[in-house]
Design a protein around this nucleic acid. Structure first.
Length: 460
RNA sequence: GCCCGGGUGGUGUAGCGGCCUAUCAUUGAGCCCUGUCGAGGCUCGGACUCGGGUUCAAAUCCCGACCUGGGCGCCA
């Protein structure tokens, strides 16, 4: 699992600690040449090693005692034979509570009876941090825990195999996304999360107190990334949190989520759709390389390009044939999304949406028509992304804002950009959590966020 | 926000008017056991969300609050 922290980085951290003598208080001795479980093999037979980690399990057979130590990468079996090790050490190891942090020095011994073909015969154990009992949940995953219990004790839930993999994969996905865009010459941007006024409308904002004024947490970087098109940045992306005050209480909504936002100048919606599907396929391929995917019981396939495209009209027709009537101009209901997902059964785009149910910045297809060059990327179970070609005409944009019942004045800074040379452009926003949950077949979006924020949960 | 479920030891559960001094597993404490890998065996400890009500009797029925699972709406 080469993507984990390299031991180089780790050694560096420890050396710094030595230098600064940080560990002087209550002074546990520094762990020299710490090895990860996966760095030790039968080939190290007879060598002296140091391991450090959490006490995962203890198996007391009377005359022989097994201590399973867990670290970031894996598990080590430490074996003690009564009578063969110092009595004091034997008793010490026996008494250390589960989930305590320990450092162990010992010898690697090749042993066919051990699960990994070798085990560690300890010479010294230091308890760096003794864990309280009883544990809030079972890190060996033998007894399950409900999501709510897991989130309350998230620090401990993250110690479980499954949960840890979810977040290592999440890191991989984000890394893959950055890699993808960097290779395509995109500029990564950071736009403000504290904003003065409603941006797009449509969703409820989270108000905050900002010195003597009221401000809000941004619902999306939409307006800013468009302004950067006017600035001549041509292709930008941002991976950042978005905030919504919606009181939705579902398995696929969060009040704080992560969005991948993209905006590209001098192209239409067709080009950014191609970028989006290419990105998704790339991310899938990177996740498929994950060595422990088997432990999540997943069978992933890289989706074939190009994704199927259906128009909004076709979607309505398909739904009608399936007995689900959607009036033209209505947004798709959750059950309509699911029905379509069952019919199509793969990733697909819905294009040519009625302008009335798309934001003011979506470009109408042709003059006088009520269809927009807007699209949604759908997974059979959940919407992943939506985007469009953008209006780049100042006049049209202003008219659109007003026709949506919004005040053009509060969009002054945004609108101004369009008066001084704005290229045609297009873009989209993709929900990172939704992408992850759909790939990993996880039903609740909260599972793919370290510390999720929803209607009720504000801590931890 | 609406509709429908549910809150029982640390965790996951059984019980759904009197057989409850509340089941089982796991965890914890202790004991036995020299090859575990969901170790095994024995002993002990540990719980009915809160507040009202109905009843001779409430974990069990009713009402409210809080929390929670699912569906829908809104939304990405």
């Amino acid at each position: 699992m080469s993507f984990y922290v390299s031991s180089f980085v780790l050694d560096l951290a420890i050396n710094t600690k030595n230098k600064n003598d940080i560990m002087n208080m209550q002074s546990p001795s520094p762990i020299r040449n710490r090895k990860y479980a996966t760095e030790i093999t039968v080939a190290n037979d007879g060598e002296h090693v140091s391991i450090a980690g959490w006490v995962h399990e203890k198996r007391d057979l009377g005359g022989v005692f097994f201590l399973i130590v867990r670290d970031l990468r894996g598990y080590s079996q430490v074996t003690l034979h009564k009578g063969k090790v110092e009595k004091e050490l034997f008793e010490h190891v026996k008494r250390v509570p589960r989930e305590s942090v320990v450092a162990i020095e010992g010898k690697v011994k090749s042993e066919p009876k051990a699960p990994l073909g070798y085990e560690i015969i300890p010479e010294r154990m230091e308890v760096l941090s003794e864990a309280s009992q009883v544990l809030p949940l079972d890190t060996t995953e033998k007894v399950g825990a409900e999501l709510d219990t897991r989130l309350d004790a998230r620090f401990m839930d993250l110690r479980t195999e499954r949960t840890k993999h979810v977040f290592v994969i999440r890191s991989r996905v984000l890394k893959a996304i950055r890699h993808f865009f960097d290779a395509k010459g995109f500029i990564e941007i950071n736009t403000p999360k504290i904003v003065s006024a409603a941006t797009e409308g449509g969703t409820a904002l989270i108000p905050i107190s900002y010195f003597e004024r009221e401000a809000f947490l941004n619902q999306s970087p939409q307006l800013y990334k468009q302004m950067l098109m006017g600035a001549g940045f041509d292709r930008v992306y941002e991976i950042a949190p978005i905030f919504r005050a919606e009181e939705h209480d579902t398995t696929k909504h969060l009040n704080e989520a992560t969005s991948v936002d993209v905006e590209v100048a001098f192209v239409s919606d067709k080009e950014v759709m191609a970028i989006l599907e290419e990105l998704i396929a790339f991310v899938y391929s990177k996740v498929m390389d994950y060595p422990d995917l088997g432990k999540l019981n997943l069978k992933l396939e890289v989706p074939k390009l190009p994704f199927r495209r259906i128009t909004y009209d076709e979607a309505i027709k398909l739904l009608s044939e399936a007995g689900e009537e959607i009036e033209w101009g209505e947004d798709l209901s959750t059950s309509a999304e699911h029905t379509l997902g069952r019919i199509i059964d793969e990733l697909y785009f819905i294009t040519d949406w009625p302008c009335a149910i798309k934001p003011f910045y979506a470009q109408p297809a042709t003059k006088g028509k009520s269809i927009c060059n807007a699209f949604d990327l759908m997974h059979p179970k959940v919407e992943l992304a939506s985007g469009s070609q953008r209006v780049h005409s100042y006049e049209l944009l202003k008219r659109n804002i007003e026709s949506k019942g919004l005040s053009a004045d509060s969009f002054e800074y945004y609108l101004d950009t369009f008066r001084f040379g704005m290229p045609p452009h297009a873009g989209w926003g993709l929900g990172v959590e939704r992408l992850l949950m759909s790939m990993l077949e996880i039903n609740n979006i909260r599972e793919v966020v370290l510390f999720p924020r929803d209607r009720r949960r504000l801590a931890p």
